[in-house]
Amino acid sequence: MKIAILDTYYPAFLTAQYEKTPSLKALPYLPQRERLLDECFGTSDFYSRHLNALGWDAQDLVVNCLPLQEAWAKENKIAYSRLALHLPHRFFRLPLIGRSLASLPGLVEIAVAQIKKTRPDVLYCQDLSFFPPKMLRSLREHVGLIVGQIACPLPPDDFLREYDLILTSFPHFVPRLRAQGIASEYFRIGFDTRVLEKLGHVEKDIPASFVGGISRHHGKAVPTLEYLARNTPIQFFGYGAGSLDSSSPILARHHGEVWGLNMYRALARSGITLNRHINVAENNANNMRLYEATGVGTLLLTDRKDNLGELFEVGKEIVVYSTQEEAAELVRYYIDHPDEAIAIASAGQNRTLSEHTYAHRMKELAPILERHYRSKK
């Protein structure tokens, strides 16, 4: 079966890559895409590589990367609206999502042309908000099954209803989507072992860290992070520091944005790393940091959730906190007891590498897609 995996990358990551390597945008489409995938941002090629190993024909589409998409359009002699591709560069530093992103005509037109040319059995959308509903509907004659995956706040209902299936790592989303008449299944995310090969040996020179974003979706976590900044030696990496009040104690220890391999490296350098879920996760653990932190061999300290025991053995493979005071106490304890921290981190890494890699996940995903494809046909 043929599958096109459609994704959008954070504009700040894309901006950083093209500023770091100005010659990147002059490369042909395939080597340009390969350079981006090599950075291991988001799910990179973690789906496509393992699906290809299972006998699928899988390819990645990074549909909001302007230079990349323009290269494909030129190589394939595709006409497109150039308005979106010539807006001021600063415009693309904004977090374009939902209707804002779908309103950029050039990007949508090129993505549609890619899908029509590919004619995949499965169109797998990692961003449910990229295509306007009418555009997604028009693609049906070129695609066998339209699938979405989500682990963030749901877009408007009209963006959801055009999908034949929506997969989610939020257990509580499944019954909610089904109640709307939308086929949905629980599907967990994971870790890719290629990250370890790319990182090599990393010295653990950061006692404790928080590596992640600070945004309106994480609003409940800011008081905890500030409490930790006042009461532990924790260091901070990620985006969103500019949204903090100038008096926030986080700022003095914030080391800026880290993306892709640099994000994994910040995690790997840490003896302990703190995780917290976005508000919409409610009482369920699901996020990528669970697997990224344990995957690189770092002790994961995460917020207590009802289903954590289904993923890891609490106290032996990860540790959990319920309050900011408990989080601070645990950070201080494991800094003072490094042997215990190393033992738990090692057990957590073993669990992730034995059960939670993308090689495992694609073996779970393939039969789900095949079943829904056959049912639709």
Rank of each mutant, 00 (worst) to 15 (best):
T43I: 08
V331W: 00
L369S: 04
R90L: 06
C40V: 06
Y186S: 05
L24Q: 09
H277V: 02
D121T: 04
T273I: 02
E70N: 09
L36P: 01
A221N: 04
R253Y: 09
V112T: 12
P132K: 14
L300Y: 01
G260M: 14
G309S: 07
E370T: 08
A113N: 10
K116Q: 14
L37C: 11
A327S: 14
H217D: 09
S243N: 07
G144A: 08
Q114Y: 11
Y186K: 11
N283H: 10
S129F: 09
L225W: 01
L225D: 05
N286R: 06
V147L: 11
T118Q: 08
L365A: 05
K20I: 02
G297S: 09
A328C: 06
F159Q: 03
Q17V: 02
I182D: 13
W259D: 01
C40K: 13
L54V: 03
L6I: 07
I146K: 13
H372W: 13
P156G: 12
D306Y: 04
Y29V: 04
R253G: 05
D38Q: 15
L128S: 04
C40S: 09
R33G: 05
G309V: 02
P22L: 12
L87F: 14
E197V: 07
L330Y: 11
E364I: 03
I189Q: 15
G315S: 06
V62T: 11
E292T: 03
K74I: 05
Y227D: 01
N284E: 10
R371F: 10
M288A: 06
K74Y: 14
L83T: 12
T232R: 10
M135Q: 12
R137C: 05
L369P: 02
F91T: 13
S243M: 10
L177V: 06
K363H: 13
R265G: 07
Q149P: 00
K74C: 06
F210R: 00
Y124S: 07
V63R: 00
F130M: 06
F130P: 03
N283M: 06
Y47M: 05
F191T: 00
L167I: 01
I182W: 15
S23T: 10
P233Y: 08
R178D: 07
P28W: 15
T118A: 15
I214V: 15
H372R: 12
F92K: 11
D121V: 05
S138K: 15
S129A: 11
E355L: 07
I3T: 06
D158L: 09
D245T: 04
I115F: 14
A71L: 06
Q69A: 02
G238T: 10
A183C: 13
A359P: 02
N307W: 12
R188E: 15
A113V: 10
G295I: 03
M288Y: 00
L94E: 14
A208I: 00
I189M: 13
T232K: 08
L14M: 08
P171Q: 12
A79K: 15
R276A: 09
R289I: 01
G200E: 09
W259V: 02
R35T: 06
I250F: 13
R137E: 12
P249Q: 08
I150K: 13
E226S: 02
P171H: 14
R49P: 08
A111I: 08
D192V: 02
S246P: 03
D7S: 14
Y291I: 04
H360W: 12
L85S: 09
